Amino acid sequence: MTNEQENKCHMIIHSHAVAAGAGNAIPVPGLGIATDMVVMTTMTMSLCAVFGGSLTEEAAKALAIAAIKNTMLKAPIKTLTKELSKLIPGLGQIVAPAIGVVMLEAAGWVIAKDLESKFKK
């Protein structure tokens, strides 16, 4: 990955993670996962463009689902904590977005590295 690609990936991943964090602040259990899916799909399509590739929305969704599934399997306690914290007024609006940002940042870099290897010229 070149420095320019890494900088573009950083901007894309960070901005999408912040957007997902904002969506996770809504105190409705389960809504965070739906928000994460939408954000991950758009993030995947944006990251693909950095490496000169092209993905359909369905392919981007499939990659996003795989990345979220891997992240959830690696850190199931974080996922449960993120969703269950929403049941506690006040605390959920702090904990859920923070965990959501961390999880999306991690998943974003996994996707970026995967796309880099797929579209390497």
Score class of each variant (00 low, 15 high):
residue 107 A to S: 13
residue 94 I to K: 09
residue 68 I to A: 15
residue 91 L to A: 12
residue 60 A to Y: 01
residue 85 S to C: 11
residue 74 K to G: 14
residue 83 E to T: 06
residue 60 A to M: 11
residue 74 K to R: 14
residue 79 T to D: 01
residue 61 K to C: 07
residue 95 V to I: 15
residue 90 G to T: 15
residue 85 S to G: 14
residue 106 A to W: 00
residue 58 E to G: 06
residue 71 T to F: 03
residue 89 P to K: 13
residue 97 P to C: 13
residue 70 N to M: 07
residue 104 L to P: 05
residue 63 L to V: 01
residue 89 P to D: 09
residue 82 K to V: 12
residue 65 I to K: 15
residue 71 T to Y: 00
residue 98 A to L: 08
residue 109 W to L: 14
residue 105 E to D: 10
residue 107 A to P: 06
residue 61 K to N: 10
residue 73 L to H: 01
residue 83 E to H: 01
residue 69 K to A: 14
residue 76 P to F: 05
residue 108 G to S: 09
residue 68 I to H: 12
residue 96 A to H: 06
residue 107 A to T: 05
residue 84 L to Y: 02
residue 79 T to P: 02
residue 63 L to R: 06
residue 82 K to W: 09
residue 63 L to Q: 02
residue 88 I to N: 04
residue 70 N to Q: 11
residue 87 L to Y: 08
residue 89 P to L: 10
residue 104 L to K: 04
residue 89 P to A: 12
residue 71 T to E: 09
residue 83 E to D: 03
residue 64 A to Q: 07
residue 97 P to E: 12
residue 108 G to V: 05
residue 63 L to W: 01
residue 107 A to G: 03
residue 82 K to A: 14
residue 81 T to I: 08
residue 105 E to Y: 09
residue 90 G to F: 14
residue 94 I to G: 13
residue 90 G to Q: 12
residue 95 V to P: 03
residue 65 I to G: 12
residue 72 M to K: 09
residue 72 M to G: 04
residue 96 A to Y: 02
residue 58 E to P: 00
residue 65 I to L: 15
residue 72 M to L: 07
residue 92 G to C: 09
residue 109 W to K: 15
residue 67 A to C: 10
residue 77 I to T: 12
residue 102 V to L: 10
residue 57 E to G: 15
residue 74 K to E: 10
residue 61 K to E: 04
residue 100 G to I: 13
residue 71 T to G: 07
residue 86 K to G: 02
residue 57 E to M: 13
residue 73 L to V: 04
residue 83 E to R: 03
residue 72 M to S: 04
residue 91 L to Y: 04
residue 94 I to A: 10
residue 61 K to M: 09
residue 103 M to K: 08
